[in-house]
Structures are given as structure tokens and as C-alpha cells.
Nucleic acid binder design. Structure first.
Lengths: 228, 228
DNA sequence: TTAGTTTGTGTTATTTTGACACAAAGGTAA
DNA sequence: TTACCTTTGTGTCAAAATAACACAAACTAA
């Protein structure tokens, strides 16, 4: 195409909605900006995409180098393209969301921010740019995807009890789920049945722990939980 | 962010999977390129995003100016970012898919292509770039979304019979669906019940035509059709 | 008219779901 | 240890959803 070099290109960035689960609450990691625009306001972690990096590489670099987070579940969410979404000029944002177990990491505010903090999804502050919209899309995706894909395990320890999983689902879906019916649905799910996931007792913990094999994630299941 | 102007930005393009339904077959619109790279090979329609245009504006411009298609259903699919996906250099592709009723338009090959043709999804030629991957993602999205959102109507005339709709679903999902159970599910769907969609006889056509009001699209429903 | 096809309605067995009873197991405090 | 409470596992059952199919009415084509 002859026009290949005649266009000026929009800038390209990634923004990430990093979910963590602690104390039976779902939280999101936010940075307090130390530069204009939106200085001292809260934003999603993000950064520009370099010519030689893929989106995932960009995400991984930002999270690992600046926040110390590695080996995360990452999934592309949507690309946000409104022409006025960044006051500095035209910036496309490719949004990703990530699920992490906060117990496994120490979050460190790098040079890019005054502060880094977990905010419960029900107590979010005002967000800079169009990040409120990105956050809303991420919550919606998480809520719908967890019904047919075992996302929840990313947020828990490798070993967890059925009731921990149950509470996680109630928290994410923001609804009550009958404990006994939930348990049966999980145990009937293909990814448990087909792969022989183990249940075992572990010292000093309750006797019904699941041992979760990360390889099981690929198997689909469907919970069909009714929203209240 | 001080780095705002120090990055060289990847080029940004949109590519579109335009679905049409004719003769009880689902087809996709492809262009035959008249320039290198991939000269004389088939590709999805697409083009570069200008600084002042959103993705949807870019899509609309390409489809209307070059192919004569207007007022289309458009939905963002995914953004493809592999660094080597375009031999000319780094090009991000934001993929959209579109549903049109081919009977309403005359497709014209503009200056950008040798030829424009509908290809049945089961008889696709080799595609240039990574467009095979984009096409596969679009089919998958269409198949899953049609189960809970009334997408199918975009592909039919404003008036259509129940059996036309039934055949469309069988075709898209590539499975057999019991005619009588399907009919009941459609009639029980919220978007029919809540809005009082009309059924009426029309001269010279079968007496069970639906009159489809475009405003109804917003209402969700769930068909829960079993894949064979 | 007749034969064949398409379409609308009804029936039924099976499966899935939601709600809940109850017992077993584990923890805690005396 | 016992008594009591909490947590967890299994079972039951009614209601709802689903899949399969019978049959009659309407239409088409000859």
C-alpha cells in the first residue's frame, strides 16, 4: 500500500486492570500519578507500546519492572480509541486485565508513581483519563467469563478450600450462591472430572483442600449461576 | 509523561470481517490485493487509522467509500499485535466484524483491489497477512454471541419467516436445531415478548413473516442451543 | 382434486436447577 | 474427656427447562 508511510500514527499504550483478592474482597491496583496530566490522581497502570514489543510484552515489562509482578494471567479486553481520551494528543489504549494473588507479591511504587494501592472494587476513587470506562469493562468481563472458565483459581493460593472458592465467586458476582449447589457444580465441572483434580488434606489446614494444577485451566466448564 | 513524544509509534490499521448471508450460506467479503505485499492474494478489507478518526469512523469510511456499504452493524473483535504480522513493518490491526444483508448493496471493487468477492466460510481461499487468524476469531465470536444476542436479524431482510431465521441459525452454528423447539425459544425470548414484535401476513409471501423493528436489538435473550 | 411439503401446536420423558434437611467431621471451651 | 458450635458432605424433592417427537392444519404443485 503506497500510503504506508504517509500517515502520522496515533500513540499506542496499554492500560491494565489488575485484580487481586484479599480478605474476601476483590480489589484493583491503582497508581497515583506523579506527572501531568492528571498529576496526583489515580490511574490504572499502563505505558506506551514500543516498536519492538507486543502488547503482552509491554504489559509484562510494566508490571514486572515497575511493580515486581511476574507470571500473571493476562487477557486482552478491548481497545479504546476516543480521539480526546488523552489531553496530550491522540493515544489509543489497548486494555488488558490481569488476575493475581496479592499474597505472592510485594507491590512497590516505582519511579512512575507517588503511590501504589489496592482499592476495593466497591470503593474506587475517581479515575483519570477514561479509566473508569476501562475498569467497568473489566469487571463485566470478569463476571461473565468466570461463569464458564475457571478464572477464579488465579486469584487464590495453589491450595484452597471449597468454601474459599465459594466466597470468591460470591464476591466477584456480587450475589449469594447456595453453598451446596455451588460445590456440586464445581465438582461436576469437566475440568475436575476429566483431569482427576486432587483433593487432599494438608497439615494445619482444613481437610478438604483442592490441589490445583495450573494445566487444568484450559478446560472449559459452565456454572450457570443465577444472578439475583 | 515525559516520554510521550520519544517513542516511535507502530502503524495502526483496522481489518474487517464482513459477513453476509445468501442462498442459505454464510459468506465473507474478501478483496484481491493489487499491490505488494501479497499482490493478487485475498485479504480482509481494511486500512490505516488516521490521527483524527476513531476505529469505527475508519471502518465506516473504508466500507462506504470503497465498497458502497453503509449503516452496518460493527463490533470490535480483538487487536492483533504480532510484530511480524506485516512485512512492511510494525502494524497493529484492530479487527472488527460486520453483519450485512448482501441483497441491500451492490459491492463495487474500488481502486484498492483487483476484485471483491463473497466467499462461503466453508470455502475460504488462502488469506494474506494473519487474516486467517482474524477470520477464525470472528467466526467464533459470531457463533457464541448469536446464542445470547439477536445478531441474526442483521443478516436478513426486515421481513423474514421463522424458517429463514431457523436456517440462518443452523448455518451459522453449523449444527441441526429442532425446528419446533427453536421456534418456541425465539417466541419466548424477551426481546419478542417485551416489545410485542409483530407477525403479519404479506402479499405474495408466506403468512408467518416477522416484522423486525431494529430498536429491538438492544434486548438480550438467551437461546441455549446445544451444539451437536 | 390429490399427494407431498411446510408450518403450528401439543405431549412427554429426561435433565437441570434451586431450595433445603440432616448427618458427619472438626474446632473450642470447660 | 464432654458439650456445644461451626463447617462441610450427601441426599431429597419439587419446579423449571430441555429435547424428542406426534399430529393436524395450511400451503404448494401437479
Amino acid at each position: 500500500m503506497s500510503a504506508f508511510h504517509t500517515y502520522k500514527n496515533p500513540s499506542l499504550a496499554v492500560d491494565m486492570v489488575v485484580f487481586g483478592y484479599q480478605d474476601n474482597k476483590l480489589s484493583v491496583l491503582l497508581l497515583n500519578r506523579n506527572e501531568e496530566p492528571f498529576k496526583n490522581e489515580w490511574t490504572l497502570p499502563g505505558g506506551f507500546v514500543r516498536m519492538e514489543d507486543t502488547f503482552e510484552e509491554t504489559c509484562t515489562n510494566i508490571l514486572s519492572k515497575k511493580l515486581g509482578l511476574t507470571k500473571l494471567y493476562l487477557e486482552q479486553l478491548y481497545s479504546f480509541d476516543e480521539t480526546d481520551r488523552d489531553p496530550r494528543g491522540r493515544v489509543i489504549s489497548v486494555a488488558y486485565y490481569s488476575l493475581i494473588n496479592p499474597a505472592k507479591f510485594k507491590i512497590v511504587a516505582g519511579s512512575m508513581a507517588n503511590d501504589v494501592k489496592w482499592f476495593e472494587v466497591k470503593k474506587m476513587p475517581k479515575l483519570a483519563f477514561d479509566h473508569k470506562k476501562i475498569f467497568a469493562a473489566a469487571i463485566k468481563r470478569l463476571q461473565s467469563k468466570i461463569l464458564y472458565f475457571p478464572l477464579g483459581f488465579e486469584l487464590l493460593d495453589d491450595l484452597f478450600t471449597m468454601s474459599e472458592l465459594h466466597q470468591l465467586y460470591e464476591c466477584i458476582l456480587d450475589t449469594e450462591i447456595d453453598r451446596r449447589n455451588f460445590s456440586r457444580k464445581i465438582l461436576d465441572a469437566d475440568f475436575i472430572i476429566n483431569t482427576g483434580i486432587k483433593r487432599e488434606g494438608v497439615k494445619n489446614r482444613q481437610p478438604d483442600l483442592f490441589k490445583f494444577n495450573k494445566k487444568l485451566k484450559q478446560n472449559n466448564f459452565h456454572l450457570n449461576i443465577q444472578q439475583q
